[in-house]
């Protein structure tokens, strides 16, 4: 996997200080949100922990000796969630699902694969969708199970499938019409 290329604002010192002027702060937050989304997309990261990521190179640039404060990082996450690009999985643990693709977009991709590979009218396990060799070259390979659930629920609401548990197992599976 290639190294992620940071955008120019990542090398600009004042980007790491939360701006007081509202209009400027809006622009700043948008730049940070875009960075989070493209970073996660590049490295196929589906969820982030606020505290862990605050100390990672995502929000800290050692080359210019600047890092985003925890409060600022929380602002960025709040913004992501409010724009619909994230969802809190566990508010206490501050873990957030990152929607560099929204659930309905995942739903479309997965359903497309289901149709093309002739998997309709069959039963699939979550594990199968996430890790089988069949899906190796698709973007949803390795997808976070929570995110997969949400995406399949979108399809469910469209009547395209049903998510259910086994009789003796509580692992999840899905049946496509």
């Amino acid at each position: 996997m290639t190294v992620f290329r940071y955008p120019p604002f990542y090398s600009y010192p004042p980007s790491f200080t939360l701006q007081p002027v509202k209009a400027t702060r809006e622009k700043q937050l948008k730049l940070w949100c875009d960075l989070v989304l493209s970073y996660c997309k590049h490295y196929k990261i589906f969820k982030l922990s606020v505290t862990d990521s605050a100390n990672s190179s995502l929000f800290a640039n050692t080359a210019i000796d600047r890092k985003l404060s925890l409060a600022a990082v929380e602002e960025v996450f709040s913004r992501l969630v409010s724009m619909g690009y994230g969802e809190w999985l566990n508010k206490e643990a501050n873990v957030c699902l990152i929607y560099w693709r929204r659930p309905y977009e995942w739903a479309e991709i997965i359903y497309d694969w289901v149709e093309r590979s002739g998997k309709r009218k069959s039963i699939l396990t979550f594990y199968e969708i996430r890790f089988s060799e069949d899906t190796a070259e698709f973007e949803f390979h390795g997808i976070d199970p929570e995110l997969l659930l949400r995406s399949l629920q979108v399809l469910e609401s469209q009547g395209k499938c049903a998510v259910f548990e086994g009789k003796t197992n509580d692992d999840l599976g899905v049946k496509f019409r």
Partner: peptide
């Protein structure tokens, strides 16, 4: 600052205006 021509930076010894 208000004209959005300047950004502040508080991670140096004193406040920098970029």
């Amino acid at each position: 600052l208000e004209m959005e021509l300047a950004w502040i930076d508080d991670q140096d010894l004193e406040r920098l205006y970029w």
